[in-house]
């Protein structure tokens, strides 16, 4: 056994070793400039803060044209409303009625909005717009501050509304 141990260790090390040595090591700067993922536990959220009140101005200038002044939707779908509609004949899926995680709002607004100029909003503006969208849905108060600590703690109304894929739920063998 004692003789075997070095062989086993060598095998484990080999499993994790680079085989082709193609590509270069990523630097901390490479990762910092590229990685903007915000995980549902808040990992990746930057310093900064904002309230719904803070977000009103930027929202009206950059978001309301498509999403409506109160998030009711206009050229694009609504961000607010739809509470209690998911099991009805006409479900209205909005951030408030449907989205399971508040962190997704920050992630998406920061990476993809406004549509014609994504990445425009800085961290404070993104927190503020996120807070406003949550406020328009009655989930937080107008002066509740959203930051890296508070945002992941916001419990979205439909947080428990998602289930695993249990397919195949159709397609049983026919004769």
């Amino acid at each position: 056994m004692a003789k075997l141990l070095p062989v086993i260790l060598l095998t484990i090390c080999a499993a994790s070793a680079q085989k082709y040595h193609v590509g270069r090591a990523a630097t901390a700067a490479d990762i910092k400039s590229t990685d903007q993922f915000i995980a549902p536990d808040g990992t990746g959220l930057p310093p900064g803060k904002g309230t719904a009140a803070d977000g009103r101005d930027i929202y009206e200038r950059r978001c309301a044209r498509c999403h409506g002044k109160q998030g009711q939707g206009d050229e694009e779908g609504p961000l607010a409303g739809g509470k209690g509609t998911l099991s009805t004949a006409k479900p209205l899926k909005t951030v408030g009625s449907f989205w399971p995680y508040a962190t997704t709002i920050y992630d998406y607004v920061h990476r993809a909005m406004p549509f014609d100029n994504p990445g425009l909003l800085d961290a404070n503006q993104t927190y503020a717009v996120t807070a406003l969208i949550l406020h328009l849905n009655g989930i937080i108060g107008e002066k509740d501050e959203m930051n890296a600590q508070t945002l992941p703690k916001v419990k979205m109304p439909n947080r428990d509304g998602f289930v695993k894929d249990t397919r195949p739920d159709t397609g049983k063998k026919k004769k």
Partner: peptide, 13 residues
């Protein structure tokens, strides 16, 4: 979205 208002997530296949 299913009839009961829950939604299947990660329905990849």
């Amino acid at each position: 979205l299913l009839a009961d208002g829950t939604s299947r997530q990660f329905t990849f296949v």
